[in-house]
Simulated assay, not measured.
Amino acid sequence: MIELWNWRIERRVAATEIRPALADALRVPVLPLGAIDPADIPQGAMLVDVWHRPGDFPTSVDCYAVPADLPEVVAVAAFARRLRRSCLLPDDTLDAGRHLLVTADGTIRPVHLDVRETDDGEILSNQRLCTVLSPRCRGWSPCHQSRWSPDSVLPALAAA
């Protein structure tokens, strides 16, 4: 099975800044998607597509041919630390508004965002923590079915 990682980054970040940060954080060659003949892709290289849209996390990053032995949360934590920006990745609930926030120090916690579809793509806004203090996250909710239950925090050192 080929795995794909989809991340969002706070503020606009150029692809020319993202690719070297990924390569350094993950210790793999990182190439732009579509910029090279598939026959010329080096063994172990990751392909990355970057684009921008509106919202609180406007930079989108898609990673293809990701390292099989590296958990995604560990990869994004290393990347967020290297880039010094918070990142979002989808969580395991299939709730479009629930994500994992990976802060610039590599700490991971579940959050909710408002999601609005537009002609320019999906816009995320109004970030708030996933916590049992929120009526949306109490009781029988998708939040409690997740590996990342409300109020869970994976500190930076554990995420490394």
Rank of each mutant, 00 (worst) to 15 (best):
S60G: 15
E3C: 04
L4A: 06
V48N: 12
D69K: 09
R85L: 07
S86A: 15
I9L: 15
I18S: 03
Q43Y: 05
D91N: 12
L88I: 03
G97F: 02
R109Q: 13
L100D: 10
S60Q: 15
E72G: 01
L88C: 02
P67G: 08
V48F: 12
I18M: 04
S149K: 15
P90L: 13
P20S: 02
C63G: 15
C63V: 15
D105L: 10
P71A: 00
V102K: 11
D56T: 10
D49S: 15
R82L: 03
R12A: 13
W7G: 08
Q127V: 13
M1S: 13
A159S: 13
L129I: 11
V66W: 07
G121S: 10
S134M: 01
E10G: 10
H144D: 01
D62W: 15
G121T: 09
L70Q: 04
A160V: 07
S125P: 06
R81I: 09
V61Y: 12
D114Y: 02
T103I: 06
P32V: 08
C130A: 13
P58G: 05
A156C: 02
Q43L: 09
H144M: 10
L124I: 00
R27P: 00
L154M: 10
D120G: 12
V30T: 13
L22Q: 10
L129S: 13
E72F: 00
D62G: 13
A77C: 01
D62Y: 14
V66P: 04
H112A: 11
G139N: 05
V66R: 06
E72R: 07
A39L: 08
I18Y: 03
I108E: 05
T103K: 09
A159Q: 01
L133I: 06
L31K: 04
V76I: 14
I108R: 07
L70S: 00
A25I: 05
R53M: 07
D91C: 12
S146D: 03
L100T: 10
P71H: 00
D56I: 01
V66L: 11
